[in-house]
Design a protein around this nucleic acid. Structure first.
Lengths: 244, 244
DNA sequence: GAGTGGTCTAGACCACACG
DNA sequence: GTGTGGTCTAGACCACTCC
């Protein structure tokens, strides 16, 4: 966190998107609320209609908004559980639901990663990388265990953050332009450590989201998010533009 | 595959997307191959550059293409495993991997669905809906159990298909314009019937994809796809257009 | 009718990569 | 330099909904 408005030199359409996202995250725009029309945004931001249209169209494709021709644009009904096809900060997501967010830091240090991670990050085998091991809680209940490896080459200052103040996702989103994302979703029976951290019953499966991110074509972060499958699911909503 | 040109009155950008998709699907454009530049598409389709740009930009956001400023646009490297953020026909996916596809039909009939499904489809409680229960196999090995409910209001002829010849996904994609999709991914320990159908060991979790589809704002189909989590994962790849 | 979104154009400027 | 993509504008026409 800290400092800057971060309003660097984002493209105009991105500024409009960012504005709408903030209005939703801060609760000013709730589910089903009417979003400013393209005409409104044109007037407010001084952009052309195509630019306002692009902002709203992309947010719609990402499942955050719903548009009805001839009527208006509205905040889509909130999803329960996590969202695919987007990278969001879990702290904001939990607070956006009106819940209390807290985090337990199990580890926040450097370590030598598995060989395939070294290779992926383009590092020598002996180089250490940042490692954060966190439990995210909603109203005190553990909802997500995060195991994150961060490349020191891409984010040399990552070690300086305090995970209790700034979530890794929030820091990285602000510090580095997110360029490419890969998600893999899988399921497995957790090991004891994971199971205990999530307060899960024995024999129950975890839903696991693996995320790899790149910034400027440089690998930044490999994360595994573990969730109790009994209370967590991932969802996405989209409108194919035909074909596929 | 076969039949209709389907070239109705698609918007221009969608026609350009469709063209690129066909070139990829037919193998004319392979991984890393160069895709026509915006300028090329402007000339070939007689559209404005903004329209060509939109087509390529959307395909890039969907993870199918990669763009390098100053260089060109290329076919992204192919994914393995199931794909999120797309609706594909599993038979084609398996055959596309060079494997042998087969299917076992457990059931293909009408039944009275759970109340929430009736409600979702806008049907009276007593109305029956189509139900298909299939096991999809790759080289004889069960990879996916499909439990599909189809609204007779949206697809009255669905009962007439032979699932051994035409997969439900292929039929529906061809018969109805896919307009909106919702995916939920979850994990659970399967019941005995599911476990046996997938030849799974006891105590192992399933990775489950739930899909709801709409055509012209009318609910069409609710499907659950079950997979052995030990050998199946879902993936997606995308490039955020900033923010989020 | 006025307001909404859906699409499209024909230009424009910029930064970048390649030769 | 040329060619590429990245963005943006200031109009436009259409179909739709709501009053």
């Amino acid at each position: 966190m800290s400092a800057g408005k971060a309003t660097k030199k984002l493209p105009l359409y991105a500024r409009v998107k960012s504005y709408i996202l903030d209005e939703i995250a801060s609760g000013k725009l709730k589910t089903d609320a009417r979003v400013p029309s393209e005409h409104d945004l044109v007037a407010a931001f001084g952009v052309s209609r195509m630019t306002a249209n692009r902002a709203l169209r992309e947010l719609t494709a990402e499942g955050l908004l719903t548009r009805v021709p001839g009527v208006g644009t509205f905040v889509a009904r909130t999803q329960h559980g996590g969202r695919l096809h987007t990278v969001r900060d879990i702290a904001r997501e939990i607070m956006g639901r009106g819940s209390q967010y807290s985090v337990s830091v199990i580890a926040h240090k450097k370590l030598r990663p598995r060989p395939e991670i070294s290779k992926w990050m383009g590092l020598d085998q002996r180089h250490k990388v940042f490692f954060s091991h966190l439990v995210h809680r909603e109203n005190g209940r553990a909802v997500q265990l995060e195991r994150r490896l961060v490349s020191p080459k891409a984010a040399p200052d990552y070690g300086g953050i305090d995970p209790e103040q700034t979530t890794p996702a929030a820091y990285l989103l602000k510090a580095l332009p997110l360029q490419h994302v890969e998600h893999v979703v899988r399921a497995a029976i957790p090991d004891h450590e994971t199971r205990d951290a999530l307060d899960m019953a024995a024999g129950q499966p975890c839903l696991i989201l693996e995320r790899r991110t790149w910034s400027n074509s440089v690998p930044v972060s490999f994360v595994e998010f573990f969730h109790d499958a009994q209370s967590y699911s991932l969802s996405e909503s989209f409108s194919p533009s035909r074909s596929t």
